[in-house]
């Protein structure tokens, strides 16, 4: 099995040692703050903080490799879409058709047309891109630093029904399975002359059915095996079950979650008072 973006990375960092509910609270605070403040500097700071948490937890730089392709695409898409069509657009920034001559930060005297980018939209696009990145980055760290069983145990402790958290986490365990299955299926199709070396959209579409159908078939077969395996281990015998592992959700954990909630509200409110987002 190969490593996928949500597989547990063993470690003993401060973040690893936190109770899973506290980890989730930390990540939720960051995410909520990102959605409640509009100031670019604050947003950037929050993103940097998240990346720092990854590094502190021992996640290698290589983990972010996938994002390298994503970030420019996200920025270009959101900035151009919002720059063109954002409802709060007032200040024309520049017009790609007449680019060298019409750049004008004050916007005075600029003749707007269908391809004019507006300052408000461009800024809002950057904000949205930062928030999207925040969504991609925050919660995976919880999975990366928590073994599945601890995740289930922790969530069950604070009242989530075990069955629900189990279904949820089993679904996550299915990701690596699909990953290997995809590798095997493409191998099998290449052996029958499927051209993976060829490029282009037509070729990509042509490859879809021969890969997807066998993947679904084997996923279905594995699901029913998995179901028998789970039942054979007396799963769901009683409403409660023993938690063999995992730190108990202690009083200090609870206080920490409450503290985080209060801090989040204070920071969110004061940020909007002292660092208002400009223009929107």
């Amino acid at each position: 099995m190969s490593h996928t973006p949500l597989d547990y990375i063993p470690g003993d960092s401060a973040f690893h040692r936190m109770h899973v509910v506290v980890k989730m609270a930390v990540m939720l605070s960051i995410l909520l703050l990102m959605f409640s403040v509009g100031n670019l500097w604050l947003l950037g700071g929050l993103l940097l903080m998240t990346v720092a948490l990854y590094r502190m937890s021992g996640v290698p730089w290589g983990y972010f490799k996938g994002l390298r392709a994503l970030i420019p695409a996200l920025l270009i898409f959101l900035i151009s879409a919002q720059g063109l069509w954002y409802s709060g657009n007032r200040t024309p920034l520049f017009d790609p058709i007449m680019l060298p001559f019409r750049i004008n930060f004050s916007g005075e005297g600029l003749q707007a047309n269908a391809l004019t980018l507006y300052a408000e939209g461009v800024l809002f696009g950057v904000v949205l891109a930062f928030r999207m990145l925040g969504m991609f980055l925050t919660f995976p760290l919880v999975f990366l630093t928590t073994p599945t069983t601890q995740l289930i145990a922790g969530l069950t402790e604070v009242g989530l029904p075990y069955q629900i958290s189990f279904i949820f986490t089993t679904a996550l365990r299915f990701i690596p399975f699909l990953h290997t299955s995809r590798e095997r299926v493409t191998e099998a199709q290449r052996l029958r002359g499927m051209d993976l070396e060829g490029k282009g959209i037509v070729n990509a579409v042509r490859q879809t059915v021969p890969t997807i159908v066998p993947m679904i078939t084997s996923a279905l077969r594995t699901t029913s095996d998995l179901e028998v395996a789970i039942e054979s281990r007396a799963f769901g015998a009683f409403d409660r079950r023993t938690a063999y592992r995992g730190r108990r959700f202690s009083r200090s954990d609870r206080n920490m979650v409450i503290g985080l909630a209060v801090a989040t509200i204070i920071v969110a409110v004061s940020a909007n008072v002292f660092f208002p987002a400009r223009g929107f």
């Binding site: 599945t148 009683f238 023993t242």
Partner: peptide, 18 residues
Amino acid sequence: LCPSVEDELAFGPENLCV
């Protein structure tokens, strides 16, 4: 079903409230 062998061995008895 579990991320480690030890958890795997614990899973059944955990369900049985041992």
